[in-house]
């Protein structure tokens, strides 16, 4: 499998990248880690005439925190996130999600920005990004803008990014006190993609009721979605087993579910419910175990 010929650009600043994008227009394509794009190029299902490799724009590689706001550069690799002590402390959902992506080699090279820009319907990040209510920073020569996770995923491999924009970073808030997070998925036995993946963030009140629940669902349909109905059932309620069941029951509500060789739409709907239930339960358990000073650590 060999790609079609292309011209290669390797900007070291965003400005250079924008310029290359402007010059190449629709014939150009940005590549970061390459783990979404290069396989498709090798199949010749994508054959950009110009490849703009943003992998050398060092400023996009950092993970940093300021006043409880965490910024993850688009070029941060899945492994970088998986191994980040900062994130394990402040937003453990991200390392936990990262650890479920592909395999070690893929995590070493693949980037969060690349994955989100590609928006594969079975990718893991979208679930976490939605559950964390992250903001996606898109920058172009025109300026920068922040896109809410909920507004970002439009359709199958289609995002709110404009053709001249580069996804530069993802911003999330540090996990508030009494919060638990969890990401669970059923792996496709070959590709490792999520047949269904569920990210849950649950914040409890002092009395143990659900102050806020946020659930992101990937793999089920053409794009990742926020399971709003699930969240509504839980909001303000005590997360009893019964309540979690009730909430999970509506996980697949209103979704147009995918169906493929490995899982029918009906089964995916079922998985969405089961995994939502399990992710919620795990998040609640962690929230209960977490004190305000010491957010829960991710379990292996």
């Amino acid at each position: 499998m060999i790609t079609e010929p292309f011209e290669y650009h390797s900007p070291t600043t965003l400005e250079e990248a924008w310029q290359a994008m402007a010059e190449t227009g629709a014939d150009g394509k940005i590549v970061a880690g390459g783990h979404s794009l290069i396989p498709i190029m090798k199949l010749r299902l994508a054959s950009p005439k110009y490849l703009i490799d943003i992998g050398r724009i060092e400023e996009l590689r950092n993970i940093r925190e300021e006043d409880g706001r965490i910024e993850i550069g688009a070029l941060a690799t899945h492994y970088q996130i998986e191994a980040s002590d900062l994130l394990k402390r402040l937003c453990p959902l991200l390392p936990e999600t990262a650890s479920e992506i592909g395999d070690v080699q893929v995590r070493n090279k693949g980037t969060i920005g690349g994955s989100l820009a590609h928006a594969d319907p079975a990718a893991d990040w979208p679930a976490a990004i939605l559950a964390l209510e992250a903001e996606i920073e898109a920058r172009s020569a025109r300026g920068s803008r922040s896109i809410k996770a909920a507004d970002y995923f439009l359709d199958l491999m289609t995002t709110a990014l404009q053709p001249d924009e580069i996804l530069t970073s993802i911003r999330v808030r540090a996990m508030p006190p009494h919060t638990g997070q969890a990401y669970l998925k059923l792996h496709h036995p070959a590709s490792g993609y999520a047949m269904v993946g569920v990210a849950a963030c649950v914040t409890l009140t002092e009395s143990g009721a659900v102050a806020k629940a946020a659930v992101g669902l990937t793999g089920a349909g053409a794009k990742a979605v926020r399971a709003v109905a699930v969240e509504e059932v839980l909001s303000g309620k005590s997360p009893t087993n019964h309540k979690l069941d009730e909430a999970a029951a509506v996980a697949a509500q209103g979704l147009e579910l995918n169906s493929d060789l490995y899982a029918s739409a009906e089964y995916r709907g079922h998985l969405a419910r089961v995994y939502t239930r399990r992710a919620l339960a795990k998040a609640v358990e962690r929230a209960r175990g977490a004190s305000s000073l010491q957010p829960v650590a991710v379990q292996g």
Partner: peptide, 20 residues
Amino acid sequence: GLIASVGQRLVQATARQVVN
């Protein structure tokens, strides 16, 4: 051809998107 043998997991969603 190629699309069938490498893209089966996305074919249905793609068709749906094109139609929509």
